[in-house]
Write a protein that binds this DNA or RNA. Structure first.
Lengths: 229, 229
DNA sequence: TATTATTAATATGTATTACATATATACATC
DNA sequence: GATGTATATATGTAATACATATTAATAATA
């Protein structure tokens, strides 16, 4: 049986073991962001390995954003940026088509799911901002400009959700969504019978219920949901 | 202005620059998973740096799962496992409380959002499986056992969604959710007036609409949604 | 001939040593 | 007190050597 992210111990390298040791060490010593850790040589000697190997293990933690190092200042534990890490590997060129489809769906799932957050946190100012965007969208002449304001509209919704992580997550997913849009055969919105425009969505946000909004958003994104089988 | 994930070039180390170069190189050469890349020394020489520095840059890519190396076989480009990377850094001990709250909310958002996927992909077998779980849950004596089947129920829903990434994502979020459950002051389900049980959710899944299900799920998770302000 | 055993070549993994460099600290100078 | 200088320090980079797993070529065997 082959599990994801687990490699057989027999072909584990020394650095792999050092990494595990460090992981336990950080955990057991209850290190928190801001805490400084022993210097490279001390760690290497304490573990009975060369500085080279220790550095390689430390590099892994640095890569993940779990520790940071500065010349002569030593190393400190840091709060990893989950989304940044995701950003670095979410590369359409490298990922399998199925995975891309999964993230494509995830974006739709979130777009519908944030309705509740919106209704808890929306303010009159937010609505006003959305309306301004729609005005600019309608005034836009080129297709590219329209698209720009379309994206801005949805980005603003994410902002209104008050959830920074979800907002950043969505931005991270944008290239994926873009890629899938080009890959899948997606027809234009106007061809849909009961298409819900941004303007209508705002209206629902002002006077409708959460349920209304979700249904509206579903219809607004209908062209994409059709891709799900 | 300070942006996330960007460091001023003046205090960029040489390895940082090597990493960027490699990144461009991989991209421009259109390397795909499975393709092998030049060996360490060649890369180092081509870039005019020591093998040491090159190795450190390569270690970063290895850490992210973008390349893999084997003794004498050289290195090959691999498909990074986005979720695995996330798993390594989603550590409640290290993350800020706000971030944890964000992920807590994200889990709820997804739980509601997958309704559409469920209705597209559910089968009679899936329903049967859910019913079996609920039976076991009701037959369970200890609180721990009940919790286990509760988790199993939701995990199965994710499985039914047919989206492996979302399914794994949810598993990744579990520790966060667990942590938040202990941190926040969450009352028990039974205290809710119009509480919707797993049994009812299944019933909706069988005869109700997507909207019904979403409303049901919302009520089922009411105790958690109350934490959102 | 087919198969196995042995050997040599190869690229990564680890160790050692040395030095560069940014930063902090202490000290000296104005 | 502010500024400049010297020194110590921990990480960053380089160079070199060797260990080790794996491949490929070669030799030995049936």
């Amino acid at each position: 049986m082959k599990l994801q992210g687990i490699k057989p111990i027999e072909n584990m390298t020394q650095v792999d073991r050092i990494e595990m040791n460090l992981h336990d060490y950080f955990r057991n010593e209850n290190f928190l962001p801001g805490d400084s850790i022993p210097k490279e040589i001390e760690l290497a000697e304490a573990m009975g390995v060369s500085r080279t190997a220790m550095r390689e293990a430390l590099t892994r933690f640095k890569t993940l954003g779990i520790i940071e190092s500065k010349k002569n200042r030593g190393m400190v534990i840091t709060e990893p940026d989950v989304l940044q890490n995701m950003n670095r590997v979410l590369n359409p060129q490298l990922l399998h088509q199925d995975t891309m489809q999964d993230f494509f769906e995830l974006r739709l799932v979130i777009e519908l799911g944030i309705a509740d957050l919106l209704y808890v946190r929306k303010t009159d100012e937010d609505i006003k901002k959305l309306e301004e965007i729609v005005d600019k969208e309608n005034a836009a002449k080129s297709k590219a400009e329209k698209l720009k304001w379309d994206i801005e509209f949805h980005a603003t919704l994410y902002k209104i959700s008050g959830n920074q992580t979800i907002e950043r997550f969505q931005r991270t997913l944008m290239p994926v969504f873009d890629y899938m849009k080009n890959t899948l055969h997606i027809r234009s919105q106007e061809q849909t019978a009961d298409y819900v425009s941004h303007k209508v969505l705002i209206q629902i946000l002002k006077t409708g219920t959460v349920e209304d909004f979700r249904q509206g958003m579903y219809k607004h994104l209908m062209q994409y949901f059709e891709q799900i089988k």
